[in-house]
């Protein structure tokens, strides 16, 4: 009991658009039972679209580009959620969840706000709407929101505040290219985010208009664990959860990841566990003073870069070891992974 009493509370971080890649987490499929079951449940809930989604997820050469909204969004949601379930299956009881972009919907689902099958329907409704939206893109800039402000115009807006000097812009391709050029000429370093849509910009507003009715019809429950929202930079409230427009507007509204992270770490130190493809959020949160000082810590479940299936499994095994070393006795040693350890959780 002494180890558990001293363990840092766990916060799960769920990444969003930009972190997707071909065969993300596919090395765990068929190897980690809890993860596999959660993925299969998602594909089953997706109905006729489930088969093609699964095929493209596992394919070396997907029929539809993995960066396309119809692939990136549902697969990120499913992988984030299934990895979260995997960690819960180890007996880890998170104290908080924080998702980036589509990751917030996965976080809300893990917290029990939406039933997984209902959430699958909500995600599919969202992508059907978004796939009809005009093309656009996203641009990461090594600059603060104040530094980029003079360059914004028209539909090119701040789509995400990732860190004090990492701001993501979003907008239609042509105007975004012009802003990109102007920023580079002024000496700023910019990089395109893998996205074929202008997420978190007004470009998607018309496409999202009808989504509120779908969210209004979905059954919602209070979260079992606080979900720190990257839209309000505060834990989800009852009124956020009950407001269909709050959910419907998430693809249009800016992601305030860093302010939400500051809010989370202001409640105390955490073991931050990234449950999603890549290590993008892990890299960002390492810049936080609490992590720099070592009072909070970071664990990533998956490798930083895409690799062979064995690399996914090795990364999960290493993460389980680190979570165990951090004082969570319920995280089983490798070889026993995926088996729910009720006895450990109860003790």
């Amino acid at each position: 009991m002494t180890g558990a009493a001293q363990a840092l509370p766990v916060a799960l971080l769920l990444p969003g658009q930009g972190s997707q890649h071909r065969r993300m987490a596919a090395g765990l499929y068929g190897h980690e039972p809890v993860f596999t079951e959660a993925m299969d449940e998602f594909f089953d809930a997706a109905g006729p679209e489930g088969g093609p989604l699964r095929d493209d997820w596992l394919a070396e050469r997907p029929a539809t580009d993995i960066d396309h909204v119809t692939r990136s969004q549902p697969l990120l949601f499913a992988v984030d959620h299934a990895l979260g379930r995997l960690v819960l299956g180890w007996g880890v009881r998170p104290a908080a969840l924080l998702g980036h972009s589509i990751g917030e919907l996965a976080a809300a689902t893990l917290a029990g706000v939406f039933a997984p099958r209902d959430a699958a329907g909500l995600v599919l409704d969202r992508i059907r709407r978004l796939s009809a939206a005009p093309p656009g893109g996203m641009l990461a800039v090594a600059a603060s929101t104040a530094e980029v402000a003079p360059y914004l115009r028209g539909d090119v807006v701040v789509g995400a505040v990732n860190a004090p000097r990492q701001t993501v812009l979003a907008g239609p391709d042509g105007p975004l290219d012009e802003v990109d050029r102007a920023l580079r000429e002024a000496g700023f370093v910019c990089r395109r985010v893998p996205s074929l849509s202008a997420f978190h910009s007004p470009v998607l507003e018309p496409a999202c208009r009808g989504a509120a009715a779908v969210f209004a019809a979905a059954r919602k429950n209070p979260p079992a664990v606080p979900v720190h929202s990257a839209y309000t930079a505060a834990p989800l409230t009852e009124s956020d959860i009950g407001d269909p427009a709050f959910w419907a507007r998430q693809p249009v509204a800016p992601v305030l990841f860093w302010p939400a992270l500051e809010g989370l770490l202001a409640t105390g130190d955490h073991l931050l566990v990234e449950v999603g493809p890549g290590q993008g959020l892990s890299q960002l949160v390492r810049r936080h003073p609490a992590v720099r000082r070592g009072s909070s810590a970071v664990v990533s479940l998956l490798p930083a870069r895409p690799g062979p299936p064995e690399a996914d499994r090795a990364a999960v095994a290493a993460a389980a070891e680190r979570i165990t070393a951090a004082g969570w006795p319920a995280a089983p040693a490798s070889g026993d992974r995926g088996r729910p350890s009720r006895r450990a959780a109860a003790g």
């Binding site: 090594a142 990089r191 993008g280 810049r287 992590v291 720099r292």
Partner: peptide
């Protein structure tokens, strides 16, 4: 660099 929290965007700016 990645384990220090510096992604390729931060590294590109440092180089510049």
């Amino acid at each position: 660099f990645a384990l220090l929290g510096y992604d390729s965007l931060a590294l590109m700016e440092a180089i510049s």
